[in-house]
Design a protein around this nucleic acid. Structure first.
Lengths: 157, 157
DNA sequence: CGATCTCCGTTCAAAATCCGAACTTACGTT
DNA sequence: AACGTAAGTTCGGATTTTGAACGGAGATCG
């Protein structure tokens, strides 16, 4: 399998990763959720090749995760903003943050704190079941084939 | 910045991605959470180079995400199992699944259904605030520098 | 007016990474 | 003896990624 084949897989993980499954793409998304919007800022903060920044931003725009919009004329300058589809990636970033905070934060604590505006507390994200509201762990989940897979498709496990 | 520098960044996203931030690594983790445990199975399901499978599994073992343990003698054969640290990656995979289900599932629906053993319902994961239990979206979060960053470190935004 | 600066890219050769295919080891099976 | 299985390793060529330079459209400086 090649990278480009991922989007065709009958698997939501594969199809998502075809868009965001790349280190720099995810780093760009991290920055975007922190408020970074401009090409130069991404390039400077990440310290990576400009062509990679270009390519990743273009892909995210093409996939509807980001929107490229002018923020001034003469000369025209654009900034990249999250669409609703992009905002829905927040749980992905938060899940990654939580894991990193738990296993890779030093003695001092996490590098970034996040406050929930709703209740005013510093928090971390917890995943709960959409139906009963109870926390969900790996062992609480039973996966089975869903309707989106053709019968002749290769089995998932 | 190079890939290897990610682990040194004062950022939980970067440090996590240094371990799991790779398409194939995340695909391997997807399979593991579906119950796949053996080298041959990963290689066959993903259809990627055996050397990549080797390298990724070794990294995950070195980082304590997976455990390599013999499941038979003569000849010795090993399988890869999630450690507790690895099980804690479940929210990451689930967040990716949810996004893919929402934006890339076809008419028919998602390719895989997941049932919550606790309540018996098919569900999707919802992220809530650890403090107040209310759902959290990107707009509800205010990030600021935490204790794990040295004062002289470069600012996060 | 000419020089330099900013922002947002593009181009290109060199370096790093990835891939497929074959090979290896160590057993079991027919 | 020949074949099959599980779990890798090796290696040359294909693909990606990178750094560094270049472009261009306007703004600002002197």
């Amino acid at each position: 399998m090649k990278w480009d084949d991922l989007a065709q897989e009958p698997c939501s993980v594969a199809r998502s990763l075809a868009v965001i499954g790349d280190r720099w793409t995810l780093m760009i998304l991290r920055d975007i959720f922190l408020g970074v919007r401009r090409f130069e800022a991404f390039q400077a903060r990440l310290g990576i090749s400009r062509s990679i920044v270009t390519e990743r931003l273009n892909l995210l725009v093409a996939e509807g995760v980001l929107e490229r919009r002018p923020y001034q004329d003469r000369p025209v300058r654009h900034e990249y903003r999250l669409t609703d589809k992009g905002l829905d990636l927040h749980p992905v970033i938060m899940a990654i943050v939580d894991w990193g905070d738990r296993y890779y934060a030093g003695e001092a604590g996490p590098p970034i704190l996040r406050r929930h505006k709703g209740c005013g507390c510093d928090f971390h994200a917890v995943q709960v079941c959409s139906e009963c509201g109870e926390p969900v762990t790996a062992r609480d989940v039973e996966a089975r084939q869903g309707p989106g897979v053709a019968p002749e498709a290769k089995p998932v496990a």
